[in-house]
Nucleic acid binder design. Structure first.
Lengths: 162, 162
DNA sequence: GGAGAAATGTTATCCTATTGCTTCTTTAAA
DNA sequence: TTTAAAGAAGCAATAGGATAACATTTCTCC
C-alpha cells in the first residue's frame, strides 16, 4: 500500500487552494464548514490523490470521531462545488485547479507512482461536445482519465511510494 | 434496481460480436473458453452494461456454480483481449465495437436509462496523446466517459428501466 | 499416459459506498 | 432572546464491488 507523502498544509498551493475555496463558498452562499475545509486541506496536503478511507484515517489521527458517511458527505459537498474531482478509475479524490470554471476533469494518471496531472484542453472538450450534439446527446459532465507513466517513472527514477 | 433488458443472444449484433471474438482469439492463440464466451455473450445480450455481480447472477441462472472470482477472471481476460470495456464511473462492463483496434474507450453514458454509445474519435485521441507527449508522459490507455442524457430520455420518452 | 500449464472452483476477506436514524448546530423569524 | 426549521454531523448497520489464497479440474503437448 502506498503511503501518501504528507505535505505541509501551509504549502503555497494548499494555502492558496483553501483561500480560493473560502472565497468561492462565500460568494455562492454555501458553508465551507470546519469538517469540509479540513477534508479539502487533507486532499491538497498530499502529493497523490487519496481514497475516502485514507482521508478518514487522517481525520481519525486528528482525534475527530468519524465513520465513512462523515467523509463521503464532505466529499459530496466538495464535488458539488467543483472544489475536487473524483478519479473513477482509482476511486480517489484530487483537488481541482480551476474551481471557478465548471468542467469535467482531464487527467494524466501515473500507473506507477500515482501522481496526477490535470489538463484543461478545451479543444478536446469541444470535440466531445460536438460529437454528443451530433447524436442528440445532452452532455452533463465529461470525465477523461489517461493512464500511463509520468516522466520520473519511465525514466527509471521511480518515486514509487511504499 | 434497473432490471436490464435481456436480448436474444442470437440477435445479429451479439452473434456477430461472438463470431468476431472467436476469430480474434484463434488468431491470437488465446482460449475463448466456454465460460469466457458465455460472459461475453451475456454482456452482448443485454441492452445496457452489466456489473460483475449482475453477470454472476445470470451465470447462476444458467445453473453454473460461481463466485465473484469466476466472473472477474473472465472479465479480466476479455478486457485484456480488448473484447469489452469497463466503465469506471459505473463499475459496469460493455462490449467493444472495434476489438481489432487497440483503443481506450470513448463513451456517451445516459444518466437516466443507462444506455451507452461508443465513440471512436481519433482526433480526440490524438490531441490527448499530444498533450501527454508535451509533458513527457507515456500513455498506456485513455478512458473517456461523457455523462448526460440520451435523445430518448431528454425528449421525455424515458426508457428508464424499473 | 503423464507432467506442467492454464483455467476454474471455493472460501474468506478487503475496500468502497450508502441507508436510515439520531443528535447537534446554525440560521432566521417571532 | 426564544424557538422552529433547516442543515450538518454522529453513529450503526449493511450493501456492493473486487481480490487473495489455496484446492481442484481441465487442457495441451510430449
Amino acid at each position: 500500500m502506498a503511503a501518501p507523502l504528507e505535505i505541509a498544509s501551509s504549502s503555497p498551493r494548499a494555502r492558496q487552494a483553501l483561500e480560493h475555496a473560502e472565497r468561492l463558498c462565500q460568494e455562492r452562499g454555501v458553508r465551507l464548514t470546519v469538517l469540509r475545509r479540513r477534508v479539502l486541506e487533507i486532499i491538497w496536503s498530499h502529493a497523490r490523490p487519496l481514497g475516502a478511507y485514507a482521508i478518514l484515517d487522517v481525520l481519525r489521527d486528528d482525534g475527530r470521531a468519524g465513520a465513512p458517511p462523515t467523509v463521503y458527505r464532505a466529499l459530496d459537498f466538495l464535488l458539488e462545488q467543483g472544489l475536487i474531482h473524483r478519479l473513477a478509475s482509482l476511486n480517489v479524490f484530487t483537488g481541482c485547479c480551476q474551481p471557478d470554471r465548471r468542467h469535467g476533469g482531464q487527467f494524466l494518471i501515473c500507473r506507477d507512482c500515482g501522481q496526477v496531472d490535470e489538463l484543461n484542453n478545451t479543444q478536446v472538450e469541444c470535440l466531445l461536445n460536438d460529437e454528443a450534439d451530433a447524436r442528440g446527446f445532452e452532455v452533463l459532465t465529461q470525465m477523461i482519465e489517461v493512464l500511463g507513466r509520468c516522466p520520473n517513472c519511465w525514466q527509471g527514477v521511480t518515486h514509487r511510494a511504499g
